[in-house]
Nucleic acid binder design. Sequence first.
DNA 1: CGGCTTTGACCCGCGC
DNA 2: GCGCGGGTCAAAGCCG
Length: 485
Amino acid sequence: MEVLLMNMADDHAVKQEENITQEGCSPEPSKTDIGRKVRKTVDLKLSSSSSTHDELETAKEENERLKMMLEQIQENYKSLQSRFFEIIKQESAIEEGSEEPELVSLSLGRSSPTGSKKDDKKTTICKKTEEDDHNKSGLTLGLDSKFQLSTEIVSNPSHENSSKDANKVQKRPSSDEDHEEGVEQKSQVKRARVSVRTRCDAPTMYDGCQWRKYGQKISIGNPCPRAYYRCTVAPDCPVRKQVQRSFEDMSILVTTYEGSHNHPIPVSATTMASTTAAAASMLLSGSSTSQPALSTEINGLNFSSSLHENSRLPSYPTITLDLTASPSSSSSFNYFNRFPTNCPATPRFPSTNLNFSSPLVSNESFTQEHYFYQKSLTDTLTKAITSDPSFRSLISAAISPMVGHSSAKPGDGTDQRGDSFSQNLMEAAFNSQSLNDSSLRGSSYFKGFESSSSRIGSSNQSSSLSFSSFNAASTLAFDNKQGKN
DNA sequence: CGGCTTTGACCCGCGC
DNA sequence: GCGCGGGTCAAAGCCG
């Protein structure tokens, strides 16, 4: 990394020299002109090399600081992970003797509206849940490709094989002989649902996936019919969703998701999928308490958990993401409410050739909003690259492991190098943005840039580390730039 | 013509 | 055992 920094710094000096040379270039330069130019060039080279040396020293110091920070964070992560496993072990020991397996705690260290008393045990549970969430957000929600891991917690893997299998499971008579605890837990896990409340005038909320309606029912206590949808992105995807308008407020659309996708999901669906998976994972990782319903807020979204509203139904846990109110709208990126409310039931946006996400995702619908965010990102980065060579060198050093070798040949000259570099940078920027988006780590696309160093600890995967280093480098570069100005 | 929605019928679990 | 309600199936119709 440091070698690259030095190379880029040398390039910087050479480029400056070339620019100056071109400035004073006349069609037929005389010998005196040439001699003057050479002296000028040497002087400039000396002065620029000394300033470059200072910059290099600063960069080195920053580099050391970042290294130390990374080490510290890795240590913290390890200790946190070991604590987490310890707590899980303790929890499993406690739960063996517990008689209330169906209640779920979602008190993530915040005061819940329904109750405020916390005994020692509850505090432990809260800690565990919080750490669980942290770990999950880092381990399973960091990448699209990892999403499946987290959602597998939501549904029984055997349940995912086909929708027919899912139906079989659903229709399986209760007189099955095996009623061991594990089976019950699996059933409980399979039944976990995530309900999303959002204001939407359209029949359904756009969430990026393709759905096919397969049924409709008028339910008791709500004149609005409940519609049943099945995911049609893959023919055997077991994911279902129910859509029903709230009786209290007809403008509120309640969408309940069940199951996990067994196929790559579109870019625009990753946020919803990650959110529901995180919510479900959070729900299922919760422990038994005596509180029937709790609420919390994660990433600016309101989460609340409860048992199924209808007492006739088996009491499987449902977690609700309330996106109707935006109490912390300043910090939250209310993804779903930002879509136009007159969206069609199953919108099919024109596909673009852009593919900024993981290789799993291909040529799917890409919203205009994504485009503007990414364009904004692109513009900002382009400006930073073109205007600040130190930023360029730092970014290059940071993302070179991510984007591979530059396509520019050694003798191609600085312009081409800059172009390929910019291309690589854009690629890396979009990749990192995609990571940031899919992991739901930030409420805005730039959040990852702004507070990158605080997030490094939550990502322990190699690709995430690359992203983190990219963030760190960009933060550093921006700092340097600000320092100059 | 293929894919989707609509809608009545059916299955199943649960409470009384 | 019966009725109720949630969930699903599948035929018919609609649409691009």
